[in-house]
Lab assay of single mutants.
Amino acid sequence: EPLWIRPDAPSRCTWQLGRPASESPHHHTAPAKSPKILPDILKKIGDTPMVRINKIGKKFGLKCELLAKCEFFNAGGSVKDRISLRMIEDAERDGTLKPGDTIIEPTSGNTGIGLALAAAVRGYRCIIVMPEKMSSEKVDVLRALGAEIVRTPTNARFDSPESHVGVAWRLKNEIPNSHILDQYRNASNPLAHYDTTADEILQQCDGKLDMLVASVGTGGTITGIARKLKEKCPGCRIIGVDPEGSILAEPEELNQTEQTTYEVEGIGYDFIPTVLDRTVVDKWFKSNDEEAFTFARMLIAQEGLLCGGSAGSTVAVAVKAAQELQEGQRCVVILPDSVRNYMTKFLSDRWMLQKGFLKEEDLTEKKPWWWHLRVQELGLSAPLTVLPTITCGHTIEILREKGFDQAPVVDEAGVILGMVTLGNMLSSLLAGKVQPSDQVGKVIYKQFKQIRLTDTLGRLSHILEMDHFALVVHEQIQYHSTGKSSQRQMVFGVVTAIDLLNFVAAQERDQK
Rank of each mutant, 00 (worst) to 15 (best):
D467A: 15
K355L: 10
V333L: 14
C307Y: 06
L299D: 03
A413S: 15
M425P: 09
L500S: 08
L276S: 02
Y269V: 01
M352I: 08
P243E: 06
P388K: 10
R400F: 09
Q487A: 13
N502S: 14
N288S: 10
A382L: 14
G356D: 04
V472L: 13
W284Y: 01
A505L: 03
K484C: 11
A322T: 05
G483N: 04
I334E: 00
G328D: 15
F271S: 02
V241N: 00
D337A: 00
G356C: 04
K442D: 15
K402L: 12
N502C: 10
Q323L: 15
S310F: 00
T294N: 05
H474A: 06
L464D: 06
V410Q: 13
T314K: 09
D411A: 15
L276I: 07
P273I: 00
Q256L: 13
D510R: 11
V494L: 15
V410P: 03
A497C: 09
A382R: 11
C307E: 06
Q450G: 05
T482D: 07
E250M: 08
G309Y: 00
G483F: 14
N341C: 00
I300H: 05
K442F: 15
N424I: 10
Q329S: 04
G483Q: 12
A505R: 04
P368S: 12
A413P: 11
Y269S: 05
T314R: 06
T496H: 08
A311I: 06
G240V: 09
T496V: 05
A505E: 12
L501V: 13
F448I: 15
Q259A: 04
M298I: 14
R400N: 11
Y479H: 05
E258I: 15
N288Y: 14
A311H: 06
K359D: 03
R488Y: 13
M466T: 12
P251M: 05
A382G: 12
A321G: 14
P273G: 00
L501G: 05
L422A: 11
A505D: 14
D510M: 12
A296P: 01
L306Y: 04
T294V: 14
Q439F: 15
V409A: 12
M466G: 14
Q376R: 14
K433A: 13
M466I: 15
T496Y: 02
V410E: 13
A321C: 13
S338G: 10
A505F: 15
E303I: 02
T391M: 15
A292D: 02
Y262Q: 05
Y342C: 03
Q326A: 11
K446F: 13
G309W: 01
V473N: 14
D277Y: 02
I416M: 14
V434E: 10
G308R: 00
D438V: 15
V473Q: 13
W351F: 01
V319A: 14
A505K: 07
K367C: 12
E465R: 11
G432I: 14
Y262T: 10
R278D: 02
G308M: 00
M419V: 15
L363N: 07
I267C: 03
E508Q: 13
S481N: 13
L378T: 02
E465S: 13
K366L: 14
I477T: 12
M466V: 15
D499C: 14
F346Y: 03
L363D: 10
A407M: 05
L460V: 15
Y262R: 02
A407N: 03
G245F: 02
R330N: 13
T385V: 03
L471G: 11
A322C: 08
L353W: 07
S485Y: 12
Q511V: 11
E250I: 10
T391F: 15
S428K: 07
I498C: 07
Q447R: 14
V420H: 05
R374E: 12
K402T: 12
G393D: 07
K446A: 06
E290W: 11
L429Y: 07
Q447V: 11
D467T: 05
L325R: 01
S486F: 13
T274A: 03
V440Q: 01
I498N: 09
E508S: 10
G240L: 04
T344H: 05
T274G: 02
T482N: 15
L399S: 03
L387I: 15
V332C: 14
H468M: 13
D282V: 11
S428V: 15
K484H: 11
P408G: 10
G423R: 10
K283V: 11
G432N: 09
H468T: 11
I477E: 09
G356A: 05
L457P: 03
L254Y: 05
D405N: 06
L471V: 15
F503I: 03
L471T: 10
S486T: 14
Q329L: 09
L347Y: 07
S428Y: 13
T260D: 13
V495R: 08
Q323N: 07
T364R: 10
G312I: 01
P383Q: 07
A318W: 01
H474I: 07
Y269K: 04
L380W: 10
H394W: 05
Q476S: 07
A316D: 09
M352A: 03
D337Q: 02
I398L: 15
V332E: 01
D499L: 04
N255F: 03
K484S: 14
L399N: 05
G493N: 11
C331K: 01
Y262V: 05
E412Y: 11
I396T: 13
M466Y: 13
E253P: 05
K283R: 07
L422F: 12
D438G: 15
V472D: 04
E244P: 10
Q447S: 10
I398T: 13
A407E: 11
T454P: 12
K366F: 07
S381L: 15
V241A: 04
G423A: 07
E465D: 14
G304A: 02
V339T: 09
K283Y: 10
G493H: 07
M343P: 01
Q406N: 09
G393M: 13
I272Q: 07
H480R: 09
D277N: 08
L500M: 13
L353N: 03
Y269P: 02
L358W: 03
G304N: 00
F295Q: 12
L417E: 09
I247M: 09
S313P: 13
G441F: 15
T261E: 11
T344A: 10
Q439C: 13
I477C: 09
S481L: 10
V281F: 07
Q323D: 10
S313D: 02
A506L: 05
G309R: 00
V332Y: 00
A382H: 13
L358V: 09
L305Y: 14
K402A: 05
P388F: 06
I267H: 01
I444H: 11
S246I: 00
M490T: 03
S310H: 01
F285A: 13
L373S: 06
T395A: 15
V434A: 14
A321E: 05
F357C: 02
D289N: 03
S287Y: 02
W284A: 00
L325D: 02
P388Y: 10
I239A: 07
G356M: 05
Q329N: 07
P368T: 07
K320G: 09
L430H: 11
I398R: 08
S461D: 06
V420S: 15
L325W: 01
V241P: 03
R297W: 02
L387F: 15
Y445I: 15
V495E: 05
V473G: 13
M425I: 15
A318P: 02
D499Q: 07
L501F: 09
A506K: 10
L305R: 02
V420K: 01
S427N: 09
W369L: 09
N288R: 15
F295K: 12
F295H: 03
G483L: 12
Q323C: 10
T421A: 15
D411R: 13
E258W: 11
E303F: 03
L325S: 02
H372M: 08
F492C: 13
D455V: 13
V386H: 05
E365P: 11
M490R: 15
A470Y: 04
Q323R: 15
L299V: 11
F404P: 02
A316C: 05
I416C: 14
C392L: 15
S313K: 07
Q447C: 14
K355V: 02
K449L: 13
K484N: 12
R374D: 05
Y479I: 13
G403I: 08
G432P: 06
E265L: 00
R509H: 14
F404V: 09
W370Q: 01
G432E: 11
P243R: 01
L426Q: 07
K512E: 13
D438N: 14
C392T: 15
G268A: 01
R488A: 15
A431C: 07
T260S: 14
T257K: 10
I463C: 14
V443E: 13
K442N: 15
V317M: 11
